[in-house]
Nucleic acid binder design. Structure first.
Lengths: 205, 205
DNA sequence: GTCTATATTGTGATAGAC
DNA sequence: GTCTATCACAATATAGAC
């Protein structure tokens, strides 16, 4: 990532990512991070003063990894139905590559909602323009008159939920072989798009 | 709940519910549960042998609280579009009353997926009949040809997501007054139904 | 910078009086 | 059954040698 960071610091961050994102702040152990990085606990405190500092680094990085795609959905000026397709494809692709991050972020935010306020201040997400665009397309008869906020939340919900609920969905539908779940997730890229499109788009005759 | 249980046991369970569901297994502290119940730590171990035993009691209870509604959606023989409306109303109502349970269950399952297998064995959810019903309605031209599994997952996703993502949604849309979020959730009962209906239902001319 | 050893506090669990 | 006192160990954090 950053060439100014030493090798050990990179090893630590990599290990911290894995452990924190899998187990959460409370479930993570500094010893486990040290083992994972192949060094000892003292070095963790040498590079990052405390467990909380290390956690913050991991959390912010994870959070920012998902922001650019959402910003594209919100800020781009393409017709909604077009950028929706691009967004869903990119977003689900990223989550497949980082399947535990959504659950990690949601859980930690639920534990500490006020930390949200501080984060949102620095992260620029311009929502009003997005809502205005949808309202305009509704007025133009392109999209059915759903509350634009509900549309945005529904889109995120359909993308994210299969990952935070993976164990239960897998137990119900794929109890035999877990391989197929990845196929299922891959299919969702088009399935989610078709679902939302079918729900909100007004086909021209 | 159970009249055979002593008063102290009830106080403990009530306190354990609150603390475990809010903070999770790892984040919960026996001391906090004792304080919340107005008794001391020793009593916790007298009634429930260990933290893990107490946690299991809370988890199973929480899990079972949400099952009957899902079973109704899956097992009832009403036309899908009808039971969908009933389900969404009941389900979101229950979650509004227990807003932290979905996040709690999803997080704990993610931490310990194999515990899922044991639980699912005792919990009867007959999915194949549900899938067959949807396939039949698709064949009859009542519902558009979406993968029935995707429809089920989408329904759950749209109901549950606003609660597990509450902090972030609230920060984006309701940063000023958090009161309005409950109004928003109430609106979702009809919004989600209309959304899914619009997506999958074939209107008769 | 990196290590071992240790301090310090937190936390689940138990012993034993009442 | 309920309490106080305490144990035993886990976990974060630091001191200090190299």
């Amino acid at each position: 990532m950053n060439e100014h960071q030493s090798n050990a610091e990179q090893l630590i961050l990599q290990a911290a990512r894995k452990v924190f994102i899998e187990k959460g702040m409370e479930g993570a152990r500094m010893q486990e991070i040290a083992d994972e990085a192949g060094i000892n606990k003292a070095l963790l405190h040498y590079y990052f003063r405390s467990k909380d500092k290390l956690f913050q680094a991991v959390f912010l990085e994870a959070f920012q990894k998902f922001l650019p795609q959402i910003e594209m959905l919100i800020n781009s000026e393409l017709p909604f139905i077009q950028k929706l397709e691009i967004f869903i494809n990119n977003y689900i692709t990223i989550i497949i590559e980082n399947p535990y991050i959504p659950g990690f972020i949601l859980h930690e935010l639920a534990q500490n909602p006020q930390r949200m306020a501080e984060l949102m201040k620095n992260q620029v997400v311009v929502v009003p323009e997005f809502l205005a665009q949808l309202q305009q397309e509704i007025k133009n008869g392109v999209i059915k008159p759903f509350d634009p906020r509900q549309i945005l939340i529904n889109t995120l919900a359909l993308c994210i939920f299969p990952f935070v609920a993976r164990p239960i969905i897998q137990a119900v539908f794929f109890s035999d072989n877990s391989e197929n779940y990845n196929v299922f997730l891959e299919q969702r890229k088009v399935a989610v798009y078709n679902f939302i499109r079918s729900a909100i788009f007004i086909e021209k005759p």
